[in-house]
Simulated assay, not measured.
Amino acid sequence: MPVALVTGASSGIGEAFVRLLAEKSYHIILVSRREERLRLLAEGVEQMGGTAEVVGVDLTTEEGLTRVKEHISWHPVDLLINNAGFGLYGPTSETDPQKEQEMIQLNVRVPVALTRAALPQMIERGSGRVLQVASTSSFLPVPYMAGYGATKAFILHYTEALHAELKGSGITVTALCPGSTESEFAERAGFKQQHPMPAAEVARQGLLACEQGRPFVIPGTANWFTASLPRFLPRPWMTRLVAHFFNDRT
């Protein structure tokens, strides 16, 4: 039975990934700080034909990150999905600096650390997949979500570089770059979404691209157009356009 580890598994895209993997009869390691939600989800996984185990940790802490890295070292995974993350909305000078550091930890340091934990085992086996959840913000400077956009740009570039490094090894690394999605993300960040895609469809496209070994995927035509803006507009124009779009979305 193949083994998958999914961070941020308790809701949104993460939960959608779990349900898709359950249908494929994976053994799924569910990682999130909301342990009670994970236990309910694990029961659903078993009803769908998969198996699951719960790892309730806060990945913004060193203790939580270390626990998951150790779990990977003891229990090798075939598929690692780095989905956990959050954003902060508002002028940078007005957002909580401690929350910003936690965001950088969760959005950047955690996926890098878990990828590094899984890769040696995958390389030894000559097989494995890593799916990183990035964003359409990976392609653009994002005024009013400056730190979040920068973390997702890191994830996209890191993923594309690893994908090239690992070519021919039997291991693939894919970045999923969604736009607005039906999840708790926007509410937690503090802004209103417009025309969100269903989380299940975002997860389906991400998992398909991962299985196909693609370096990245952008779900939805509108999101593809947004991510393509740097090809057509001078960077100052593009940044002003994004600033206009993100200003006053509370």
Rank of each mutant, 00 (worst) to 15 (best):
L20T: 00
V108W: 07
P196F: 09
L20E: 14
S10K: 00
P230D: 00
R19W: 02
W224N: 11
G170C: 05
F225M: 10
P143G: 09
D248V: 10
E46C: 06
T7P: 01
R116K: 15
R34P: 15
R37S: 10
E70N: 14
V173I: 13
G8V: 02
F86M: 05
V18M: 05
E23A: 15
L65I: 02
E63K: 14
I13Y: 01
V57W: 07
S228M: 10
L131C: 01
V217H: 09
P230Q: 02
L38Q: 03
P91Y: 04
V45H: 11
R231T: 09
F191C: 06
A203D: 02
A146L: 07
P178R: 03
A243Q: 10
M238L: 15
V133G: 00
T174L: 12
A227Y: 09
A9G: 05
R249K: 15
G206N: 10
L208C: 03
L38H: 01
G220H: 05
V54D: 08
Q193G: 10
S11E: 06
V130M: 09
A175I: 00
G213N: 11
Q105D: 02
T51M: 06
S127V: 11
T174K: 07
S73K: 10
L59K: 00
V110L: 12
D248A: 15
G90M: 05
N247Q: 14
R125Q: 13
H163L: 02
P234G: 03
L21G: 07
W74V: 04
I29A: 13
V133I: 11
V31I: 10
P196K: 10
S169T: 14
S138W: 00
L233K: 04
A146S: 14
R214Q: 14
A199W: 08
M197G: 03
I104W: 12
H163I: 02
Q98Y: 08
F86A: 08
E201H: 07
R249P: 01
L65T: 12
Q47D: 12
N223E: 11
W224T: 12
D248H: 14
I155M: 14
R235A: 13
T7D: 13
R231E: 03
T159Y: 01
S93K: 09
L5F: 09
Q98I: 15
V130N: 00
T221E: 04
E160D: 08
P219V: 05
G12L: 11
G206R: 13
Q105S: 04
L79S: 06
A16N: 08
E100I: 15
R109Y: 12
G12T: 01
G85T: 06
